[in-house]
Computed example of a mutant assay.
Amino acid sequence: MKIEKPVKTTEETFSNAENIADILNQVATKEASADHEPGRFMLKSIISGFLLAIMAVFMLAVKTQFEGASHGLINILGALAFSIALIMIVLTKAELLTSNFMFFTVGLYYRTVSMSKVAKIFALCFLGNIIGSFILFGLMTGTKVMTPEMVAALTKTVSAKTVEATWLAIMIKGIFANFFINIGIFIALQCKEALAKAFFIGIGVVIFVFMAYEHVVYNAGLFAAMMFYNPDAISWMDILKNIVWAFIGNYIGGGIFVGLVYAYLNGRRDDIVKG
């Protein structure tokens, strides 16, 4: 019996074409929202910042209340606690800057969105994310949720991310952080069940938090918390250093290493536009 050699077309090698089509559809939706309903788009961005901030508080509570346990156990528990934030953000379709890095880089590759629109959306999204953090921590000051131990842990974390970190370390850890976050989201796009989506979204966050990588929106939330709870310990130039290089690193990790790579692997630049 003769076995014929399988013949494949180039299009059959584009294994994640459905993902790319889904991403481009979401890019069009996000663009329309930012253009025609900027207030609603901003509100969805604020929700993301609020969720990240409240889960950062949850993570600080977990870490301080389990003090005395092994360092690794405390870190993994904190990472699991914080992973809930991104799961909620993605499943509620809120707007997070760092996940939009992947989405809009795919849009730029296929020329479905302009650079000026992307810059506007990134600015709105980041501003909304920061406002959400400020709202959460502003409200939190009216409670006793943030204990002295949690404030001490917050201050130690911020110092490690700003004063003690070099720009190169921040950028590289920013690449790793958003690579894992966006690869998780990219895989989750292939899942139909909510639990499967939640698992793959969460696992990327667990990795980045456990390894203490740099996430610009999460970091901005921590800096907002410092303004309410320990403003005297803030080093503004070091905070600016962290935000700039974490932003750049996050864009490389999510936008280039995930968005651009998978856009390139799944079709020529004009394929989807012409179709």
Rank of each mutant, 00 (worst) to 15 (best):
A32M: 10
W236R: 08
L222N: 10
R269L: 06
K30G: 00
Q65H: 14
V273W: 04
G267P: 01
S15I: 08
F104L: 15
D271G: 07
K93V: 04
L240S: 14
A246F: 06
R268K: 14
A21C: 08
G204Y: 01
V57Q: 08
Q65C: 09
M150C: 09
Y251T: 04
F103W: 01
T13G: 10
N75F: 06
I175E: 02
T166L: 00
A81R: 02
F50S: 02
L43E: 03
I256K: 06
A94L: 08
G255R: 02
N230Y: 02
H71M: 09
M115Q: 12
Q65I: 11
K93N: 15
D271M: 08
D35A: 12
T64Q: 10
W167C: 03
G128A: 07
T10P: 06
F208T: 04
M102L: 13
S99W: 00
V106P: 06
S116L: 12
M88Q: 09
M115V: 15
I248G: 02
H71S: 12
L222W: 04
F208E: 02
E11W: 04
S15V: 09
A224H: 04
S15R: 09
Y110H: 14
L189T: 08
V27Y: 00
I256P: 11
A152V: 09
L108S: 12
A188T: 10
Y213H: 11
A160P: 00
I23T: 09
I47D: 00
E37F: 13
S159R: 12
I172G: 03
F122T: 05
F134A: 12
I47R: 03
V113S: 01
V145N: 00
V244C: 11
A152H: 13
I234H: 07
A34S: 13
R269G: 03
Y251F: 15
K173M: 10
N75H: 08
G138D: 09
T155Q: 14
K30T: 05
L60I: 07
I183P: 05
V209S: 05
A263P: 01
A177M: 05
F122G: 03
N129S: 11
G39I: 13
N129D: 10
L124E: 04
K5F: 10
I239S: 09
K44I: 01
A152L: 13
G267R: 01
G138K: 07
T112N: 11
F126S: 02
E95F: 03
L43N: 04
K274E: 12
T105E: 02
A196E: 15
N242W: 00
I84T: 14
E37D: 13
N182F: 03
M146Q: 11
K173R: 15
M226R: 03
V258G: 05
V216Q: 01
V118D: 01
L154Y: 06
D270H: 10
D22A: 15
I3A: 10
Y229S: 10
V57W: 01
L24P: 00
I175Q: 02
K117D: 12
I89L: 11
E149S: 14
Q26R: 14
F101W: 05
E164T: 12
L260Q: 04
S45D: 02
G259F: 03
A32R: 11
S133N: 09
G128T: 06
F247V: 04
K241Y: 05
H71A: 12
A196L: 10
G275A: 13
A152Q: 15
H215M: 08
T162N: 05
L51M: 13
